[in-house]
Structure formats: C-alpha cells, structure tokens
Nucleic acid binder design. Structure first.
Lengths: 111, 111
DNA sequence: GACTTATATAAGCATATACTTAAATAATGC
DNA sequence: GCATTATTTAAGTATATGCTTATATAAGTC
C-alpha cells in the first residue's frame, strides 16, 4: 500500500487529525471514531495498525493503555511529491524566500 | 473515491507527473505508461477517466487527438490538508514570512 | 463512403481491503 | 490467581477497483 492509499481512508485521515494536536490512547481514539463512523473497536484497531505499519503513527505503552502519536515522515514524502506541482499555485519565490518558506535551513535563532 | 485514493495508484501518479510539465495526447501518455507498467491502452484510458472525473485533469480535443492537462484544485486540497501537520517539519515562520511562503498575497512586483 | 488511426466504453473477472464477530494477549485491582 | 479493562489478532465475507478483451465512437485519409 502506498502512503496515498493510507490517507485515502476517511477513518485513517480522521485519526491522524486527532493525533495532530496530541498523543491519544487507542481507546480514546476508538471512542471518537466509533461515534463518528459507527464501526467496531476492532476496526479502529486495524486502522491503527495500518497507520503504524506505514509509518504514520507510533505507539508507546503506558500501563494498560497504548498511546498513539503521529509520525510525519510519510506526510513529508507526500508534501515533497507535491513540489512538482506547486508552481501552479504558489508564486515564484526568490531563492532566499524559498529557503525560508520550505524550511530547508536550520536557523540558529529567529531574528 | 477521495482525492487521496486517486493518487494512491502509481499509474495515475505517473500520468500526473507526465502532465506536470506539459499537455500531452492520450496516445502519447498511453505509450509511455504501457512501456513502464505493461498494461493495456484501455487500462490507461480508464485511469485518464478517473483523473478527469475527480478533477485532476482536463482534456481538449485537437483533431483526432485528445490533449490532457493537469488540473490542480484537488492537489491544492491535499496540500491544504497537510497544513495541520506542517509545523512538525517546517520552522515556525513569522506572519510575513508565512504570507510570502504560502503565497496568500498577490504581490505587484518582486523587490 | 470505406479504411485507418485515436480514443473511450462495456462486460466480466480477480484481488485487495474494510468490515464483522470471536478469541487472544496483557496489565490492573482485588 | 481471578476478574476486569484495554487492546490486538484471527477468520470470514462483501465490495470496490484495476485489469483484460471486445466493441463503440469519432476524426482523418484516400
């Protein structure tokens, strides 16, 4: 499955949206998703597995809970793939603006 | 089908890459794709239909040919969806830099 | 107008994936 | 250690999608 396929599923997109702010326990995620999509807890768990398997999420145990967090590498890959089309909707930037805009440089201190 | 599903298919991604530079005739696209993916002309045509149907491509007739071009609205939608994750990999920009970076403003003249 | 070229559509089939229910695994509390 | 809570995994099924071959549509050529 390709990263784009992973994001093709609305449940998985919603889960990632939930994780964009904060880590959340599998159960807390399941509760929200079950309410919004009317699917079983097992189904939610299977989606979490897909997100793990394709590098969109990480888990850590905390007692009986499993805390999920977003992992951005595949999202960055997608962002990079879009680069070849960006000139269609982003104005041409000069070299410096591009550096700033796309964060290619680590800056020591914001001015 | 969601925009992400459309991009989930490697053939469709490749077609869009081909269109990123230039318009191309359906036949020219089919030729390349058939060589690279070993699928039939009909299959390529079906992918072109999906790209049309979901707003990723437009066609115009030119004699017996059909010239395809990329249409970026759904790509921009995806780009916008990624916004909520960008803070993970882009440095925090100040307001002005963000304006410049994301092209929210039409500038009259580059300095 | 028949023939060829360019492209799309139809019909049918195979496979992947998203769900279900049931069961397994693991930590917590008594 | 047994029950409970939290979560994953297994097995089975339905459906969507991507392919195939065959056919339709439309324009260009003689």
């Amino acid at each position: 499955m390709h990263a784009f396929d992973v994001l093709g599923d609305p449940v998985r997109r919603r889960i990632l949206e939930l994780l964009a702010d904060d880590e959340r326990a599998a159960g807390a995620i399941a509760e929200i998703i079950q309410r919004e999509f009317a699917i079983s807890q097992a189904a939610v768990s299977q989606h979490l597995k897909v997100l793990r398997d394709y590098g969109f999420a990480r888990v850590r145990r905390e007692g009986a809970r499993r805390l999920y967090g977003v992992e951005t590498a595949p999202l960055r890959d997608i962002d990079a793939w879009l680069d070849r089309f960006r000139h269609f909707w982003e104005p041409k930037l000069d070299a410096l603006a591009t550096e700033i805009a796309r964060g290619k440089k680590k800056r020591k201190k914001p001015a």
